[in-house]
Amino acid sequence: MEKEILRMTNIVKTYKMGGEDQVVLKGINLTVNEGEFISILGPSGSGKSTLMNIIGCLDTPTSGEFILDGRNVSDQSEKQLSKIRSKEIGFIFQSFHLLPRLSAKKNVELPLIYAKITKQEREEIAVNTLIRVGLDDKLNHRPNQLSGGQQQRVAIARALSNNPTILLADEPTGSLDQSTGKQVMELFTELNKEGRTIIMITHDANIATYANRIVKILDGYLSEGDEGDA
């Protein structure tokens, strides 16, 4: 029996826009088990990023229940949410979001600083994760000295550094060309084979097929799709 690490029940997210309510998520139900690699596929504006922000505890749902690793997220304080983001979630963004003044190693150390890991340990972890994503020779390069694919690898190393429960990626290949995107996806597949749980958001059906489970989002609702459907 696989361990359930995420369960969303009837999640609704409403934005207030000039007095009018815009319901972006209309009742999301989603369960993710440990070790899954799942794609959330949907067109632009369908609420993918909104959903990802809620999963990543950057945002809270308007209503519904969200259990993450046994904890009910809706009754956590701001400070506790910071802790969850630090310990449970590894974010990967479309535009990498590396700090331009810091070296690859320093960028990877960033989440470890907020997790209060000692300097020596931090450096060790940063070097090891950078080696893991194949950047052993780029430790001291700054983002502008790296290619897009290499920058995304640094970002993946950063997401991995705190050994999070879930790797959460929003359009991780959106800024990369096809072959580089493919390499990043292969890295994802490897990481998943090592047991890492991955939730990936994309509007690209081809990219979505790297996952072993695809869910589609449309008009604020999720629907389970099978791989052949994309």
Binding site: G56, E78, K79, S82, R85, F91, L110, P111, Y114
Partner: peptide, 8 residues
């Protein structure tokens, strides 16, 4: 930084 776990 907040996404990476920084508290306010």
């Amino acid at each position: 930084r907040k996404a990476l776990g920084a508290e306010p």
